[in-house]
Simulated scan of single mutants.
Amino acid sequence: MNGADMLVNVFVPAVLAALAWWMPSLTSPTLPFGVRSPYARADDPVVVEQRRQYRRQVAASGAVLITVGVLVSSVFRFGIPGVIPLLTVAACLAAYSRARVAVMAVKQRENWYGGLRQGVVADTALRTDPERFPWLWAVPALLICIGTTVVGVLRYPSLPDRIPVHFTDSGSADRFAARSIGTAFFPVFAQATLTVLLLALTWMSFQARADLDPARPADSARRHRRFSVRTAISLLLLAASADLTLLAGAWAMWHPDQRVSPALSLLPILAGLAVVIGIAVRTGQGGSRMPAQDGAVTEENTGMVRRDDDQYWRLLGSVYVNRADPALLVQKRFGIGWTFNLGNPRGVALLLGIVLAPALIVPLLVH
């Protein structure tokens, strides 16, 4: 089994299955499988049982698919790039869907929100005295982009008429293209596009509305502040690590006489992803796994619960559609991060712009 097959058919499915298995621990206790629930139901028997079944199903399907990936790559020796990871994602989604449906059915049958005071809270201090965006952590990514550009400009005049654009697992070139600005500087343009997108998305998520708990609003506001800063730093570090991987690819293109192992080139971005995942596991979604404040006395419960807003979440609770909500980004119901409000026309336009920008830039560079 070569390195590429090992990465695609074994390592990636293993990481996906591990993240899916851990995902219920990252989300808020009031969102079991994306179903909005009162805090008193966090350890309801149906939630505990469905969490157990979900993890059992994810672990079993992940083990089977990783085994299939090993057999396909090393025994049968025929390539099906990307199929095993896609099947892993599909199996995890099936387990999630089954658990979500079961929890939702019990919630509706037992009327979990009956007689409870629902509410929404906002912390105006998050606007009047916001946390500072950690711009300094964006400097490494910007410096790497500038450095790559300088190296490319210096190397371009001495490049041969045909330059390598693809490499084998051993680092030897096996595909070439005519030298041009588009081909020679493709890694630079990719760096710039990726860096700008990640910086923009990180800044927008940093400004996104806080999902505060009306039962303990002050505690959850403190968690949100630290969660936002740490998550932003991890994403900015991811941008720098991705730029380092692209720099390694550019170096191999611009120095065809020097072999650069593709596996080693991937180490920076893998390290960046490990940092993002590590911080996500430590903080939880919205800071749900963090203490309100080290050494602080826990805030007294107000007796209110979060508003039951399941009606605005479609497609297994993964898509948010609320035309009355002006927010562009809202926190996900399952997992870590943010998603777009597709009920807001600006949110739809922003999502389309992010998706279409790389799709339009790449063909232009190729031609």
Rank of each mutant, 00 (worst) to 15 (best):
A18Y: 07
Q57V: 06
A125V: 13
V58N: 08
I80W: 14
D123P: 02
I277D: 02
L236E: 06
A208V: 02
R98P: 00
S170V: 13
T195H: 01
P13Q: 05
V75S: 06
P157S: 14
S25Y: 15
R109S: 15
V196W: 03
I66N: 03
P38E: 00
A105R: 13
A349D: 08
D44S: 10
A177N: 11
R127N: 15
V276H: 05
D308S: 00
V229M: 09
W137E: 04
T149S: 15
G147M: 03
L7M: 14
A200C: 11
I80Y: 13
G286F: 01
G317L: 02
G295P: 08
S205W: 03
A94I: 01
D129H: 15
A215C: 09
A252I: 13
G79F: 10
S265Q: 10
A184R: 09
L116Y: 00
Y39E: 14
L26V: 07
Y320M: 01
P262L: 08
A105T: 11
R307G: 00
W21K: 01
R307W: 06
P256N: 02
V10H: 01
A14I: 08
A296P: 10
H255F: 13
G303N: 03
K332M: 03
R41A: 12
G353Q: 10
V64D: 04
R55F: 04
H224M: 10
W21L: 07
V366P: 10
M204P: 04
F76K: 01
V72Y: 05
R216A: 05
T67C: 12
N2T: 15
E131Q: 14
L315K: 01
G347Y: 09
I146T: 14
V101Y: 00
F227I: 09
T124Y: 11
P363V: 04
L352H: 00
S180P: 01
G287H: 00
L356S: 08
W112K: 09
I144K: 12
L198K: 07
A274Q: 03
S180C: 04
P291D: 11
A17N: 07
S25N: 15
S234V: 07
R51M: 13
I80R: 08
S170C: 10
M253E: 14
L247Q: 06
V330H: 09
A95P: 07
K107F: 07
A18G: 11
L247C: 13
A20M: 06
A218T: 11
M23D: 03
L244P: 12
L266F: 06
Q207W: 00
I361T: 08
V165K: 05
P157G: 15
A90I: 03
R225P: 13
W251R: 12
T128W: 09
Y39Q: 11
A91P: 03
V68M: 12
D5P: 07
L116V: 01
V103A: 08
V64N: 04
T67V: 13
V165W: 03
D219F: 00
S234F: 07
V321N: 00
V89G: 06
T202I: 05
Y312R: 04
